[in-house]
Design a protein around this nucleic acid. Structure first.
Lengths: 139, 139
DNA sequence: TTCTATGCAAATGGTTTGCAGTCTA
DNA sequence: TAGACTGCAAACCATTTGCATAGAA
């Protein structure tokens, strides 16, 4: 999870400032756990206006500080990005979201490019299952 | 692309009927190409009520006849499913959506399961790039 | 002082729901 | 005739926008 300082410099490098409301929002997001909806942030930061929450989420997403997770049911949630390219592992039982990187996917994408003639630029992989904790709980 | 007949039996096997509006919607979707938004269907089928379009899309999605495509920008579109598990290849230039199956991904998922302790049940992979036609057009 | 950022409230857009009427087995 | 299905319109909900104000360089 990115530190406030690194977020501040990421903003600065694009000409944006880490204002008080933005700082408050980042802190709230850090407290919200591994994923959250826009509305969770709105509720957890009552001092910050709704519009600012959405504007900030979009800004942070553009900067790669926040990323989207597509859940099981197709709805989207947000998450503080762990940095670098990664994929999400979503637990269908408890909703936990964690991430993983996978170099192995690159070979697969090369293969797809070769077979289809596409130039492959980006991808999105979400994996759904049951996390170790939930598996243990269920025996 | 599934035929009307196969869709009718898929519906029947779950106790649903292929009514006239539903048939009209499927025909409209077939004419809409490789992907479409709910609203495209609403506009292309003026004789069918908006609510029926949404109810039918959901029904067909539950039956696996229609699938969701998550586009580049995170918005979701629909598509008549090609049957079986597959992934989507989305062209960022022209928006074309095609699909591909990939057995190679299974090994990768096994590996993820092994490393994380998750029981992996499902996944969603969307690949974004530029299709051969667009690449040719741009030289 | 100038430009960015904010808050509020209203507008928007897509999706769902309530309900009375229609169709079909 | 009973149950599934439909259309319409209203309700809903999340997100965006307009605009006047506040704040930082």
């Amino acid at each position: 999870m990115a530190s406030i300082d690194s977020i501040e410099s990421a903003l600065a490098s694009e000409g944006f400032r880490l204002t008080a409301p933005r700082r408050a929002l980042v802190e709230v997001m850090q407290g919200l756990g591994d994923h959250f909806m826009a509305d969770d942030v709105v509720e957890a930061a009552p001092a910050v206006g709704r519009a600012t929450v959405f504007r900030t989420l979009r800004l942070l997403q553009d900067l790669g500080i926040v990323c989207q997770v597509v859940l099981d049911d197709g709805t989207a949630a947000y998450r503080l990005a762990s940095g670098g390219h990664h994929h999400h592992l979503v637990c269908s039982e408890c909703g936990a979201v964690s991430d993983f990187a996978s170099g192995d996917l690159e070979g697969l994408l090369d293969d797809i490019a070769r077979r289809t003639g596409y130039r492959v630029d980006a991808h999105r992989l979400e994996v759904y299952g049951v996390c170790p904790d939930c598996r243990a709980r269920e025996g």
